[in-house]
Design a protein around this nucleic acid. Structure first.
Lengths: 154, 154
DNA sequence: TTGGTTGCAAACAATTTGCATCTAA
DNA sequence: TTAGATGCAAATTGTTTGCAACCAA
């Protein structure tokens, strides 16, 4: 395996990417941070801080609630997960795997389940809205609360 | 003044409208609720529950924090005010005067100031996003965090 | 070696609730 | 008259913080 191949492999491995992020910021690579990262990046769906604590502890039982809360902003800043605050009781988080187009959230009004939906031209739309105020978008979110049209089947 | 004129006047008066809402729901018209309503509907800008408590107390000093919190959902349900949760530390509220087109929120990333902006075709867009999931929109929100393009002047 | 990191428990801040009292209808 | 509404203070919930012990670099 060439050095170049090794480098590429490394960059393909999300955990390595996260470790490099930590190092580049002068932060330490601790067992707890790796356990929390693995739990956070593996998850299929949205999760709360408390969910993440449970999942992290299955990997490293020493993980504390405080460390989860202290790690979440780091994970978000690294771009490996996204934060989604839809105004429910707590904030939700989500692994940020391939997605690059803008995502909208649809919240089922009957069970608070969150769906992520591609909304590509949202980007342009947000920019338009900002222009009227002489501003430029830093982040944007379309959030739709909705209800199943035919609730016979759930 | 005819009876018809009197009725029209009544319906034009927001406080009367709110009182009628209370009565129609079998809720009592109390001094505190009216004071809170007046404070809430008069406000020019967004406000928090705590802001509203201060404003209400200037009208009726007996208003308690608990009553403000208990009244807010009623005010929202009456349609006289709107709730805007942009994921900042607390929820914001806003008098809902004439507006009928869809509103987007632009949050200044530098000072957390919230701007309400008309976004009429959002309505259609939200519906489109929902259709893919076999749902219909109950409420929707476009929220854009943005920054002044030329921050020389604030 | 040593400054960043951790777990713990206490602290916080926003909101909700139990209860005795009050009051609109 | 009486069920709904209120004020107060205590409780709850999600999150943050101070601090002594710990450990990655």
């Amino acid at each position: 395996m060439s050095l170049q191949e090794a480098t590429e492999m490394t960059l393909d491995n999300p955990r390595e990417t996260f470790q490099q992020f930590l190092t580049s910021k002068g932060l330490r690579v601790t067992n707890q941070r790796i356990a929390i990262f693995d739990a956070a990046y593996d998850a299929e769906d949205h999760y709360t801080a408390e969910d993440l604590l449970d999942r992290s502890r299955k990997i490293d039982s020493s993980v504390s609630r405080a460390t989860v809360y202290r790690s979440l902003p780091i994970l978000v800043e690294s771009g490996m997960i996204r934060e989604v605050d839809v105004g429910l009781d707590n904030k939700y988080y989500l692994a940020n795997r391939e997605t690059r187009t803008f995502q909208a959230q649809v919240i089922d009004a009957d069970n608070d389940k969150i769906y992520e939906v591609d909304a590509p031209f949202m980007e342009w739309y947000g920019k338009t809205v900002c222009e009227r105020l002489g501003m430029e978008p830093v982040a944007m979110r379309l959030q739709v609360t909705a209800r199943k049209i035919n609730p016979s089947k759930d």
